[in-house]
Design a protein around this nucleic acid. Sequence first.
DNA 1: AAGTGAACCAACCGCCTTGAA
DNA 2: CTTCAAGGCGGTTGGTTCACT
Length: 304
Amino acid sequence: MARPAAGCCDTMGLLKKGPWTPDEDRKLFAYVQQHGFGNWRTLPEKAGLQRCGKSCRLRWINYLRPDLKRGKFSLQEEHTIIQLHAFLGNRWSAIAAHLPNRTDNEIKNYWNTRIKKRLNRMGIDPTTHKPRSNLLIGTLNHMAQWESARLEAEARLVKDSKRILSPPSNQKSSSNSNNNNKGSRPRTNKSECLDVLKAWQSVVTGMFAISATNNLDPVIFGSNQSSWGAAEDGSIVGEELIFEDDRSKYTVPKLNNSSSMCLRNSMYHWTGPRTGRYMVEGFSDISVHDFDYPIQIEQNHQDL
DNA sequence: AAGTGAACCAACCGCCTTGAA
DNA sequence: CTTCAAGGCGGTTGGTTCACT
């Protein structure tokens, strides 16, 4: 095919390239306003521009079009982009079709410079929208250790419970030669395994807290199958963590006897009574999976 | 104040699709 | 059916601005 150099109708190298000047913008805008853009190839000459038609078209579509909405993307727009990208992939024009007054170029830039990086920081593959395996493996190893410790502690609890229940009432544990090797700390019905649970909670919430202090987005780890429940006696201590940046507010509720945390469908899910708060605002795209756990989402006051 | 790297974004490049001849 | 022009699209580049040291 005797086709000119791809991408440009300027075969002689006579046409201007690079940033548009205000004067060029005025000429293009005035011409399109008056005549419309019938044929981009012939438009530059008619409009008195030393540009190729393709360049004019791009300038009009991405910058001069009067219906363009410029400036910061709202949280709602960001949600839409992430969700549509999960379905459509890098089909920017298709995504742009769902975001009135935004250009595909703008969305593409926003994705590549911000959302993509953020997802990466969170250990989520921006292409597949799933947790990255290496992070997952590391996390799973870590979790496996905790799970192992938990099971061990639970086994010890059961064992201790039997021992506590079995002696006659007149025999105190402090006088029991089998039970005095670690001092005479009185037993309570607070199980030892709860220390593991507390530690686990501090690790999990710590992840979020660290993320917050580093001005990063919360990290959501995920896997499947493994599950973890909260203490049954409600003795876990710790406060609900709330932190926020200029756009979002994140809440990590404390675990107690009426709430629990588990892994399912590659996500952590907290369950429990409604607190009026939400888990991780701003990432509903990530949370939208076919799980049957209610996730509280509270709209931020700033956007939406 | 100067230097440096990161972040941002406009614009370009090259390939693909579409529709007319 | 083939060819070709034009428009459309996504990837990439490079200049500018910002933040930090």
